[in-house]
Amino acid sequence: MTDIKKIAIEALEDLKGKDIVAMDVSELSDVMDTLIICTGTSNRQVKSLANNVVEEGKQAGVRPIGVEGLEQGEWVLVDYGDLVVHVMLADVRSFYDLEKLWSMTPASREE
């Protein structure tokens, strides 16, 4: 079986992605198991990092369900279903702080 998580991380490392974080969010989400977040230093690098993830995945026989944000290059999301890759500019990553958001335990609902 193809390990898209390993492929994605190596594709980000190959192009010098910064602060790569892989989070297991399976306990927090019904739609994905792993979230990978990476910082690019410019719009061009963000686009290149995301494209490299897609290309390396394709070479391994895995195609994304979707890719969003390539036009602007501030925040690109590559969706593989169980795995979602976010490549962001530093200020965008800091503003949205996905690591903190996805590390929070959901509040229980009282019925």
Rank of each mutant, 00 (worst) to 15 (best):
M1I: 10
I4R: 01
K5A: 03
I7R: 01
A8T: 00
L12F: 09
E13R: 07
E13Y: 05
D14H: 08
K16F: 11
K18R: 12
V21T: 12
V21P: 10
V21Y: 13
A22Q: 07
M23G: 11
D24N: 15
D24E: 15
V25Q: 11
V25L: 11
S26Y: 07
S26D: 10
E27M: 14
E27K: 13
L28I: 14
D30Y: 13
M32I: 05
D33M: 09
D33A: 07
D33C: 14
D33L: 11
T34V: 13
L35W: 00
I37Q: 00
I37T: 05
G40I: 09
G40L: 11
S42I: 07
Q45Y: 09
Q45K: 03
Q45E: 10
V46D: 12
V46T: 04
V46F: 09
K47Y: 11
K47T: 05
S48R: 01
S48H: 09
V53C: 06
V53F: 01
V54Y: 14
V54S: 15
V54L: 15
E55Y: 04
E55C: 08
E55L: 08
Q59P: 06
Q59E: 09
A60G: 10
V62Y: 00
V62N: 00
R63I: 03
P64E: 01
G66L: 02
V67D: 06
E68C: 07
E68G: 05
E68I: 04
L70F: 05
E71Q: 13
E71K: 15
G73W: 14
G73P: 11
W75H: 05
W75Y: 08
W75G: 00
W75D: 02
W75K: 02
L77C: 03
L77Y: 08
D79T: 04
Y80L: 07
V84I: 06
V84N: 06
V85K: 05
H86A: 03
H86Y: 03
M88L: 10
L89S: 02
A90M: 12
D91G: 09
V92S: 07
V92Q: 14
R93C: 07
R93M: 10
S94W: 12
L98E: 06
E99N: 12
E99R: 13
K100R: 13
K100E: 08
W102D: 08
S103F: 08
T105K: 10
T105Y: 09
P106Y: 15
A107I: 14
S108E: 14
S108T: 15
R109H: 14
